[in-house]
Design a protein around this nucleic acid. Sequence first.
DNA 1: AAGATGCTTCGGTTAAGATCGAAGTATGAA
DNA 2: TTCATACTTCGATCTTAACCGAAGCATCTT
Lengths: 233, 233
Amino acid sequence: MKEGPDIARIGTLIGDPARANMLTALMGGQALTATELAQAGGVTLQTASSHLSKLEDGGLISQRKQGRHRYFTLADGAAGTLLENIMGFAASRGHLRHQPGPKDPALRKARICYDHLAGDYGVRMLDSFVSRGVIRTDGENLMVTEQGRADIGQIGIDVAPLVSSRRPLCKSCLDWSERRSHLAGTLGKALLSHFLEKGWARRSSESRAVLFTPEGERKFLSLFPLERPSPEP
Amino acid sequence: MKEGPDIARIGTLIGDPARANMLTALMGGQALTATELAQAGGVTLQTASSHLSKLEDGGLISQRKQGRHRYFTLADGAAGTLLENIMGFAASRGHLRHQPGPKDPALRKARICYDHLAGDYGVRMLDSFVSRGVIRTDGENLMVTEQGRADIGQIGIDVAPLVSSRRPLCKSCLDWSERRSHLAGTLGKALLSHFLEKGWARRSSESRAVLFTPEGERKFLSLFPLERPSPEP
DNA sequence: AAGATGCTTCGGTTAAGATCGAAGTATGAA
DNA sequence: TTCATACTTCGATCTTAACCGAAGCATCTT
């Protein structure tokens, strides 16, 4: 009788606090072991193991055996995007777990959102692109302009190989701390990788924070100037 | 300690089968009473009332009192989009509630997805737009071309007023019965409204099916010809 | 081989919340 | 006023599943 996709199953999987915490931890983009995820979820290893197998059956995560460890990651980009969407929605309704934003100011400033940069710096980067005409926006969709390709090339990133993938090149992602959009998609991913490779910033070991070096910060800010505060919905 | 948006809360709301059924019913885009939603959810009125207040607290739905009725709708477009996303994801993982598609063939052929057309006809419409260059696609983002605006104008729809809104003009939405994309966004909404206004089709009273008249069907098919089966991921 | 580490499976307990009957409130009809 | 309809609130029951201790399996180290 009932028609359609089983959204309740996905909802149930995400609806348990321990599982939600594990998934949030996996949004960091790194593969984590069952033990690490148990800690992230705040449960014992036995309980975590049960949760992880449910998440895997549900297609949200996948695992890779390596020696006596099992490394878990989000199943794919679609799973990451789904979680981003839900986070954005939850934030838009004011459903925050503690108070208006992350307590840790570093997390508010710059953090990883699955595979791209979020937080104040992530929002600033997209704002700068839009105000300088590198990226054009049509409500929600984002497109790199012709001239924008050259600008991004100057940063040291070749746009061409990024479009081949089935993931979109640009995608806006609602930032829960800033309540504005930042840049996701393969370009967002490439930019973050670039910053990390150049040594401008590194990942925090305990959280999703991205820590810029003083020099990296200087370069970042000069690379992504803000003309004026651009009002965005 | 815990950072970020409370995705577990949203998950829990969607994770209950009765609530999921109610939300799916509301994806039809029409305002429904508590009694109707109780039936959709397969629970008594008391239980439904409890569910509805939880959904409202969570920001997924809103209500409007009218005499002794209370009409419930999805809170806004963002809520609809969220549910669409989750449906698409669930379908992509094969989480269907019964078997590979809707039992009702009419539902497979054409149905309402919140406010736009889905099913075989919905997919065909987008395919036709893409193959004729009315809409260009960049991975996931959709854009109406210059020439496309004129083509759509010929159908009788003025694109200009559709872009002002904060919702995107075009948006792809994964179709769970076809496993391909169809057209959402304000343009998708305008097209469906147009078909209904012109009397080419009408909504089914019991389900989300959209029933075309013989003449409406003829016009629809000639308006959205398929050059060749276009392979899409 | 023996021990340590990482993880899974099993079993019993417990807590959360979904459910509905019954009673209460609000609006409309007669 | 009286009755009917639409819905909410209260209270009690009952099912589901989250949880962890204990035991088992697999892999690495020594």
